[in-house]
């Protein structure tokens, strides 16, 4: 009898642990938006890691900063400003690369820090109600209605593009020469992927902020890459692991009263470390290979 009561107590305690946060509107919203953004960034992360665009992801996510500031100052949707600056930075990287003898990774580093610095200067100069800390570190707990709507729209666009072009983008990442030789417009795919990257970076900065958004764009893909040899499975694992990280991250930040963006990315990093150690074929411990 007492044992039964005890079990019941524990069960209700566990549920309270999980359900309590849901009684707050801001938590429901934060969980919903983090899971959505996590899933979308997770899907994109497969292409980023396979294409070798981690640095490009970092660049674009930093370069959207002045765009966000300018858009807020002009009363435009922040996603529009971010998109323009994100794609603009990549175009600039391409232009400088073509016209100078400086190596590409140097140019990427140079351009994105330049844009980021411009963003910092603009924030300090333009009178607005932008909270620098929110842009830098994200604030899913304090996200506004209009931001929620914009983020949902962005996520829908990104998912739609990635679903419609998934085979073409996969082929583009794997063997662009073949793609081009059979008449697929690889230039279009290149800019499509960049545009989607800019959009996803804006969505991601809502939850984890500009500094950490690159983690959302590469870590789930890297984790999934260690766990499978099939592209479809890789996208599935990346999306699931990214959603789990986001939801768990928000919960942990609530339970322990810690910074949300950091918490989400730490969970992602932990999942990667687990895969790195224990992945059946590619983990360093290679558990399955022992038998």
């Amino acid at each position: 009898m007492s044992k039964y009561m005890n079990d019941l107590f524990i069960t209700s305690q566990t549920f309270a642990f999980l359900l309590d946060p849901l009684s707050h509107e801001f938590m429901r919203r934060a969980l919903m938006i983090s899971a959505l953004v996590g899933g979308v960034c997770g899907l994109l992360s497969c292409y980023m890691t396979l294409k070798g665009w981690a640095l490009m992801g970092d660049a674009v996510s930093h370069a959207v900063m002045p765009g966000v500031v300018v858009a807020y100052a002009l009363g435009l949707p922040f996603s529009l400003g971010a998109f323009v600056f994100g794609v603009g930075s990549v175009a600039l990287i391409g232009f400088v690369k073509q016209k100078s003898r400086v190596k590409e990774d140097t140019i990427i580093g140079l351009v994105f820090t330049g844009f980021f610095a411009l963003g910092l200067v603009l924030v300090s100069k333009i009178k607005s109600n932008i909270d620098l800390m929110h842009i830098l570190f994200g604030s899913p707990l304090g996200i506004s209605d209009s931001d929620v709507h914009q983020t949902i729209l962005i996520c829908l666009i990104v998912v739609l593009v990635l679903i419609i072009y998934r085979r073409d983008l996969m082929l583009y990442c794997f063997d662009p020469t073949h793609a081009r030789s059979i008449g697929i417009n690889t230039g279009l795919l290149h800019y499509l992927l960049l545009s989607v990257l800019s959009l996803a970076a804006v969505a991601g900065l809502q939850t984890v902020g500009i500094i950490l958004v690159v983690a959302m764009l590469i870590t789930p893909g890297a984790t999934a890459y260690l766990l499978t040899d099939r592209f479809d499975r890789m996208t599935f694992i990346a999306v699931i692991s990214s959603i789990i990280s986001s939801v768990l991250g928000v919960y942990i930040s609530y339970w322990f009263d810690i910074e949300t963006g950091g918490s989400i990315v730490l969970v992602q990093t932990t999942l990667f470390l687990l895969a790195f150690l224990f992945a059946p074929r590619y983990g360093i411990l290679k558990i399955n290979n022992l038998n």
């Binding site: 396979l50 085979r167 073409d168 996969m170 082929l171 990442c173 794997f174 063997d175 020469t177 073949h178 793609a179 030789s181 059979i182 697929i184 890459y225 499978t228 040899d229 099939r230 592209f231 499975r233 890789m234």
Partner: peptide, 25 residues
């Protein structure tokens, strides 16, 4: 075009079937 062996990333998560199917895209 049939690439050289080092022309493509062979750690890419695709099966032999997937690669040959790319010829049909």
């Amino acid at each position: 075009y049939v690439p050289q062996n080092d022309g493509v990333d062979c750690s890419f998560p695709v099966s032999v079937w997937d690669v040959v199917m790319m010829g049909r895209y």
